[in-house]
Design a protein around this nucleic acid. Structure first.
Lengths: 386, 386
DNA sequence: GGACTTACTTTTGGTGCGAAACAATTGCTG
DNA sequence: CAGCAATTGTTTCGCACCAAAAGTAAGTCC
């Protein structure tokens, strides 16, 4: 089952950089690669040869721009053999396991979800193995599995602590490897999403990059020099102590006026419920706010200001080239993006370099995709460093 | 005059790392260097040979621990020839030029200040040349000059814009090189201080490091991966838009409740003057606050909380290994350090890794030393990258 | 069809490194 | 004091990697 991957490892530093560049930036000719990587043309011949022989790269006919006919010998673009291997990504939540199959390029080619009725580690591993078997029917050439879990993960293998699963020191990678025979990488869900975006998404090629996720909680990821910076508190809830407005609302989660109290979906729903007595869904609240209903509008406006304040603070102190907003709560940007941007502008030095703010509409399959990307990173390229 | 430096450049990457390690961490044996740099013993022989031949390094008798007599061949520590060259550092303020002479190790061996009665570029360059001549009497082996200026500096040579000197596009490096015959490096004062601390000071060997200076204004420096991150606004005043407390005081500088309004020396003096009608010095205000005088105590307390808030925000978003407080306003920490630390703790996640907060008592000669270090960095090691 | 342009390959030589053998210098032991 | 162990530093060799230059391939332009 792992035949396709046998010849991949190990890659030298030069080969790895070539493989990553092609993987991330699509078909590229050797000359173009030499330019991008700062290497000579000769080196590219040398570096690409083993990659082509091992089956990771192929020469493709010519890019989709045959109209642009230049003089001289036509270039010979190289591309990854996208279907030389598929990767599985799982995201485990309290009540559901979301699964995706992706290509080497991290394109999702299949989805499959399953309710989770137990939190017993062995039974969860059984569920994952069953889902793997099911997905393997359609895509037999599976090369590895990535699993994203909310919680503290050690060595990309052991779930050290997960509050919502009530796990402690569960060797999840081993459990799933035993059952599937595939190599498994386990990581914190936010960390996996951040790494995926750093590679294939909004953070591609950036030196300083921040990911902020809004959902049931807040997530924060910082990438410096292409590497994610680990935070001690990252898996026990960001933002509970980020006091944005000391006069802000008090909610069950987080401190008064904290980012969590102002921004997360449960806190926003709680505020509306506490004020009106009606339990409304998040999207419903956004729609009401957009329509001008005063109470939801006030809550949403406050949330937008809080988000703007956070973005400004991050910009002021980290100066990332881009900040990516992701998670199920980014609908806020559609309704109140203008307020967010105004707040950011107000709290930044007028001469400061503007920071790109990007919103990514995302569902749970994106988290699973993030886990799959981490598996690609570790298993194909033999290293987590980029 | 530059004989001693003739053979230094250029250094290969390996040689440079050896030179820096010895320069920064004192006498080290080849074996110890191999361990620290992750190189083989043989490479160290190769790399150290040209450095010794060029006179930058020497074998020194043995460290000050002859008691610790181990078995085997005794190690042969290498050290920089500290007096093989001296470096000049200048800090130009509105009314004074502060000058220091340092060794290669950045130890200050002489100081000399001069009032500045004119801001005419040529005359300022004359003053610098005269000070250089004077200091050269005692220390003839001058190898280079570093100059720190508040303002925007381009290419480490040209003062693009300096508000307090009313300069624009002044080729200061050229002007001083003409008059002294020495190589000159010009840099923004905060940037120079940050680089100096990154090398020889509190930031030695750290990956993520922040410098916050408090004085007439605020300065902020971010070092990631050993490299300083350039900020577009850095030379036009940090902190004017960092709103710490929207109900805070309104002062002539900065926005209401901004870090500048709460923390800088002029703002603190302004607040006390506005409330009491008496114009008091900064140190005097700190002393009164410590003694319990209500009005100064309130202003100082508010400043301490503001500082704590900033430190917490920086910690939360950047997660530096250390934050260094420097500048003429750090006396605040002596009087209200406890308040600062409490505020930081209050605004950090309880599980978050603690951030080292270090205070550096500094006067203007430290700024001059920073400029000298930058000259060492550029002139001796042939590169600003570490 | 010849001149030209661009892409890629091959060859050559240099650099920097580690591995391993070797030399040097001490302490320890009988 | 001779011999051994321990440790540091040196020399030699070979490998991995790269750039430069020369050569080859495959197209366009006139």
């Amino acid at each position: 089952m792992t035949d396709g991957t046998a010849g991949w490892l190990p890659l030298s530093a030069g080969e790895r950089s070539v493989a990553i560049e092609v993987l991330v930036h699509g078909p590229l000719s050797r000359t173009e690669l030499a330019r991008r990587l700062g290497l000579s043309a000769g080196s590219l011949t040398r570096l690409t040869k083993p990659l082509i022989e091992s089956g990771l790269l192929v020469e493709v006919p010519e890019a989709g721009a045959p109209a642009e006919t230049r003089q001289g010998r036509p270039s010979q673009p190289l591309d990854v053999v996208a279907d030389s291997g598929f990767f599985l990504g799982f995201k485990i939540t309290e009540d559901t396991v979301y699964g995706v199959v992706t290509t080497l390029r991290s394109h999702i080619v299949a989805r499959h979800d399953r309710p989770l009725t137990t939190h017993d580690p062995a039974e969860v591993a059984d569920v994952l193995a069953e889902m793997t078997a099911e997905l393997a029917k359609e895509h037999p050439r599976l090369a590895g599995i990535g699993i994203g879990v909310g919680g503290f993960v050690q060595d990309r293998a052991v779930v050290g602590e997960s509050p919502f699963l009530l796990w402690r020191d569960v060797p999840l990678a081993d459990l799933v490897e035993e059952r599937t025979g595939l190599p498994v990488v386990v990581e914190n869900d936010v960390a996996a999403l951040v790494e995926a975006e750093t590679w294939f998404g909004a953070g591609r090629g950036l030196d300083r990059f921040v990911v902020l996720t809004i959902g049931a909680g807040l997530g924060y990821g910082l990438v410096l020099g292409g590497k994610r910076v680990p935070f001690a508190e990252e898996d026990r809830g960001f933002g509970r102590h980020w006091i944005v407005d000391s006069n802000g609302p008090l909610t069950p989660d987080g401190r008064r006026g904290s980012a969590v109290s102002l921004l997360t979906i449960p806190s926003i729903r709680y505020q509306v419920r506490a004020a009106t007595g009606i339990d409304r869904g998040y999207e419903e609240i956004l729609a009401l706010a957009a329509a001008g209903d005063p109470m939801p509008a006030r809550v949403v406006d406050e949330a937008a200001r809080a988000l703007g304040t956070l973005v400004a603070q991050i910009s002021n102190f980290v100066m990332p080239q881009k900040i990516l907003l992701a998670g199920e709560g980014v609908g806020l940007m559609d309704v109140a993006g203008k307020t967010v941007e105004e707040t950011v502008r107000d709290l930044r030095h007028p001469l400061a370099a503007p920071v790109g703010l990007e919103t990514k509409v995302s569902d749970f399959h994106d988290w699973a995709r993030g886990a799959a990307v981490l598996a690609i990173k570790v298993l194909v390229l033999g290293s987590a460093e980029a």
